[in-house]
Design a binder for these strands. Structure first.
Length: 159
DNA sequence: GCCAACGTTGGC
DNA sequence: GCCAACGTTGGC
């Protein structure tokens, strides 16, 4: 059941592999390689075109939110699951019955002020953000509209 | 590089 | 269906 209402997300990427600068250069990317069912279900069942995204740099020094993106195409089967040469190859997946899906993400803005994880942890506005919770490894996380609006303004430098 | 936390796998 | 073993994530 797809929600008709716009939702907000935090999507993690390792900048050594794919940073916000890479997305800026490429403009759009298919969010391939997600191999976690909860994250897959968000892309498959929840995301709609126009949903807004906080682009998070994980495994980085420092980790934190680097900018904004937007969902630009709805979920389709992740092609890497069929590719034997890919590290994301899934022998159990078939074209008739794909196992993994990806949405397309489009670059929107690089933050003027990168928001570090440390800052998020110390900000009273962000108490409910999942990413600050210990042991939270989910690579795609829902974010409340309030948190999204606050953090985008903070990152863009308008507050 | 370490390791805590979590997800997945597979034997039973 | 339980759970130990293993693999991965990701902060530090």
């Amino acid at each position: 059941m797809k929600s008709q209402q716009k939702q907000y997300w935090l999507m993690k990427s390792e900048p050594d592999v794919f940073s916000i600068d890479t997305l800026k250069k490429d403009v759009t990317t298919w969010w391939e390689g997600v191999r976690n069912y909860q994250a897959r279900n968000f892309m498959m069942k929840e995301m709609i075109v126009g949903d807004e995204v906080l682009f998070y740099h994980s495994n980085a020094t420092p980790p934190g939110i680097a900018g904004l993106a937007v969902i630009s195409e709805a979920a389709k089967p992740d092609p890497t699951q069929f590719d034997k040469k890919s590290e994301y190859y899934d022998p159990k997946a078939t074209k008739e019955k794909p196992n993994w899906f990806c949405t397309q993400v489009k670059y929107k803005k690089t933050f003027k002020h990168f928001i570090t994880l440390e800052k998020l942890k110390n900000d009273k506005h962000c108490e409910n953000l999942l990413v600050i919770k210990k042991g939270q490894r989910l690579s795609i996380q829902p974010v409340s509209e309030k948190d999204f609006q606050y953090l985008s303004q903070l990152g863009l430098g308008s507050i």
